[in-house]
Write a protein that binds this DNA or RNA. Structure first.
Lengths: 225, 225
DNA sequence: TAGATTGTTAATCGATTAACAATC
DNA sequence: TAGATTGTTAATCGATTAACAATC
C-alpha cells in the first residue's frame, strides 16, 4: 500500500523549469553531483526552497553528498511531462507569431512547432521556418492530424477569444496566450497568459518607486485627504 | 501630518496592469462607472481581491455606486508610473528582437522603442521598424542621448549576462530579460524574466496531470519505496 | 569517525477570501 | 428611505524560511 503522493504546489511547479535548465547545463559540463546550495545559487533562489521543492518530487538526494545531476534531471523532466514531445500550433502569423515560429528554443525543449495557422488568405500558402501556413478553417484537421496538444495565440487582441474557442473545439489541451487580453476557457484547459507590455508596466512601477516618489505622486487627492 | 502609505504588495502590483487594461476598454466604450464586481469579472479575478487591491492605492470608490472609470484609470496609471513615457532599448536583433521592435503594444502603452542594438557589424547600419540598429559599443551614448530607462535583452542566452552588465553600466534602471538564463544584476535594478519555453513547460506539467498519471510516472523508484 | 548535506518540522510571513459595518 | 456597493476586518490558506535531526 503506497501513500497518496502530496500534490506539487503551484509555486514549486513554476520553479521546476528553472532547476531543469541548471541541471541541463551542469550535465553538459560533466558535473555528476550537485548540492541544494549550488543549485539554488545558479537558479537564483535559496537552498531551503530548493530542498523543499525537490522533496515534493521524492527523496532523490543523498545526505552528505547532494543530488545526482543526471538522475535528478530525469526526475524533474518526468514530473514536468517532458519525456514526450508536445507538438504546438501557433495561430497568428504577424510579427510575434513569425518570431515564435522561428524560435528554436521551443523544439529544443520538447515543443516542436508542428503547424502554423492564419486567417488571412494572403498569408496562407506561404511558410515560416519551413512550416507551411494553414488556413484557420482547417484548424480542426491540422490539430488532429499532427496530434497537437498546445495552442499558442499570437493574433491581434480582438481575435484572441475566438481563436481560443476554436482551439478548444479543435481539441488542444492547453493554451498559451500572448495577446494582451484575458480569454475564457473551460476549467479543465490549462491556460497561461504572457503579456509583454504587462511586464514593462510592472518594471515601470518599481522604477518609479526607486527613483523616489515625485511631489504630485504622493498621498490621496486633496478632496479626500 | 500624513499617515505613512502602506506599501503596495507585489501580488497587487502584478494585477494592476490587468485592471488598467479593463479600465482603458471601459473608458473607450464610454462607461462612466464600474463596480468591483464588473472589474473583477473582466479582469479574471474575484471582487474581494479587486477591492483589496484598489484599497492600497487609496479610497477611490463610492459606496453604493462603484468607481469612476476615468478617475480610477488615472490613479492606476499614476501608481504604475505611466504618466511619463519610459523609452526602452532592445539589445539583440535576432528573430525575437525584431519581433519586439515591430510590436506596437510597447509604444501604445508608454514604452517607446527608442533604440535597437546589436553586436553584429552586418546588422549595424540596418534598421527595423524605422529605427536604426546601433553597435553594442555605443550602448552608453545611446542610453544617455535617448534618456533610456529600460533595457530589453533579446540576445542568445550566452550573451545575456554580458549584456545585462553593460546595460547596468550604461545606466538603465531596469531590465526585462527574454533569454532563458538567469542574469545577476545589482539589488537596486528591478529585473523581470520572461521565458517563453518555461511557460510551455508549466503547461506541460498541468497537461500531463490532467491526462492522468501514466504507470511509469507514479510513486518513488522501487529502491526507495 | 567527522564533516557534509539532505529531508522535514515548525515558525513566520504574505496573499486570499468571506463577511459585514459603513455609507453613498 | 431602501438598495447597492465600498473599504476593512478577521479567518484561512499557501508559501517561505530557519533550524536541526537523520544519515551518508
Amino acid at each position: 500500500m503506497t501513500t497518496a503522493p502530496r500534490p506539487i504546489p503551484e509555486a514549486t511547479v513554476t520553479r521546476l523549469p528553472g532547476y531543469r535548465a541548471v541541471l541541463v547545463e551542469l550535465d553538459a559540463d560533466g558535473q555528476q553531483t550537485v548540492s541544494s546550495e549550488q543549485l539554488a545559487e545558479q537558479a537564483g533562489v535559496n537552498a531551503a526552497k530548493v530542498r523543499k521543492d525537490l522533496s515534493y518530487l521524492g527523496s532523490y538526494g543523498t545526505r552528505g553528498v547532494g543530488y545526482d545531476v543526471r538522475f535528478l534531471l530525469f526526475q524533474v523532466s518526468r514530473v514536468l511531462g517532458l519525456t514526450t514531445d508536445w507538438p504546438v500550433v501557433i495561430v497568428g502569423m504577424g510579427n510575434l507569431g513569425r518570431a515564435l515560429a522561428n524560435y528554436r528554443g521551443f523544439a529544443e525543449r520538447g515543443f516542436p512547432v508542428a503547424a502554423l495557422v492564419d486567417i488571412d488568405p494572403e498569408k496562407v500558402g506561404g511558410s515560416v521556418a519551413g512550416i507551411p501556413i494553414t488556413p484557420l478553417a482547417q484548424l480542426d484537421s491540422v490539430v488532429a492530424a499532427q496530434a497537437i496538444s498546445i495552442g499558442i495565440i499570437a493574433t491581434p487582441a480582438d481575435a484572441a477569444q475566438m481563436v481560443a474557442d476554436r482551439l478548444v473545439a479543435a481539441g488542444v489541451s492547453s493554451i498559451l496566450n500572448f495577446t494582451p487580453t484575458m480569454v475564457n476557457v473551460p476549467e479543465d484547459v490549462p491556460l497561461r497568459q504572457v503579456d509583454l507590455a504587462t511586464e514593462l508596466q510592472i518594471l515601470s512601477f518599481y522604477q518609479q518607486q526607486h527613483s523616489g516618489p515625485q511631489k504630485a505622486v504622493m498621498g490621496p487627492p486633496a478632496d479626500l485627504a
